Amino acid sequence: MADPLFDAIERKRLANLLDELGPDAPTLLDPWTTRDLASHLVLREHDLIAAPGLVIPGAWSRFAERRRNALAHRDFSWLVDTIRSGPPRGFFRINWVRRLPNLNEFFVHHEDVRRANGLAPRANSPAMDAALWRNVSFAPWLLARRLRDTGLELEWAGTGKTLRVRRGKPAARIVGLPGELLLYLFGRQRAARVDVNGPACAIEAVGRAQFGM
């Protein structure tokens, strides 16, 4: 039952790192800086009108980006304090939201900042790894929907636990710890510490694919 707290842990760690690095540090989301990322996180939870534009393309997405740019001009300390203060009342405090999208959001963006600034992958607790594997297992086909011409399996390194994402032959298998697999599925392929195994054509197909939302 401690799972819902992992999003709060990642939120706090990310806020502390943002404070430490300041507003102009790089992220994996080049050309975004830490200021851009902080404004994105504030908009996601606090701008009910613009937030859907983070996932809906077109005019709504452009509207959300204008609102995010406006937030990015706010004081950086205010942005970080708003993130640290936790989710506002309502949707983002619902238990399943904390366990799934919020944990994914704060874990992945925490790593966006860490790894862009030379910090190595972390050794997560067994409970954290279990929570991340659960999230990896939740509709991974959505994040891999642009993959073509190959099947895909995921394997939690060192455990033998596997998950079939896409049927098909030939098939590739991505092997890594749960956090690394999550990063890969969310489009951070270059940063994720994983092994991609299988026939050469399947590995090439995975390498060409655009993963993520």
Rank of each mutant, 00 (worst) to 15 (best):
L17W: 03
E20K: 15
A157K: 06
E204Q: 11
L29H: 11
P178M: 06
E155R: 10
F91P: 03
Q189H: 09
P52K: 11
L143D: 00
L177Q: 14
A139V: 09
V113E: 03
P52A: 13
A72F: 01
G86V: 07
V108Q: 01
G160Y: 09
G176M: 09
L177Y: 03
D75F: 00
D30I: 02
N69H: 14
L71A: 09
E65F: 09
A205L: 02
R164H: 06
L143K: 01
A144D: 05
T34F: 14
A2G: 07
V55S: 04
I94Y: 05
A123W: 04
F107W: 11
S39R: 00
M213E: 04
E65V: 02
P126T: 07
F211W: 09
L17C: 05
D19P: 03
A127L: 13
A8H: 12
P140K: 13
P88K: 13
N117V: 02
V136Q: 04
D129P: 05
R146Y: 08
F91M: 12
F92M: 05
P87G: 10
G22Q: 07
A38M: 03
P170H: 09
E155S: 02
M213F: 11
H73C: 04
A202W: 00
N117Y: 02
S125G: 04
G168D: 02
L43H: 12
R190K: 15
V55K: 07
N124P: 03
F138C: 04
L185E: 01
N197C: 05
S125F: 01
E204W: 03
A59P: 08
S137T: 14
R67A: 13
G86P: 06
A139L: 11
G207M: 01
R62Q: 07
I49Q: 10
P178H: 02
D112P: 08
N95F: 03
S77N: 13
R208Q: 10
S85H: 06
D36F: 05
A2C: 00
L100F: 13
G86S: 11
T82D: 00
V206R: 09
E45M: 12
I203T: 11
A51M: 12
L37Q: 09
V194S: 06
T33S: 08
R173V: 14
V206C: 05
T33E: 01
G176N: 10
N104H: 07
K12A: 15
A38N: 00
W141F: 08
H109G: 08
F106V: 09
V136T: 03
F91C: 05
P121L: 09
A25E: 04
S39A: 15
N197L: 14
R74S: 13
T159K: 00
R74M: 11
R74K: 10
P170Y: 07
D24P: 04
V165W: 10
Y184F: 15
D149R: 15
L142C: 05
A120E: 15
Q189F: 00
L147I: 10
R84Q: 14
A72T: 07
L182C: 03
W96Y: 08
W156G: 08
R98N: 05
E180S: 03
R115V: 06
F211L: 00
E105G: 05
L183Y: 07
F211H: 00
K12W: 02
L181A: 12
R62L: 06
L185T: 12
L79V: 12
K12T: 12
A64F: 14
I174V: 15
V206K: 08
A38R: 00
A51R: 15
A8W: 05
R44C: 08
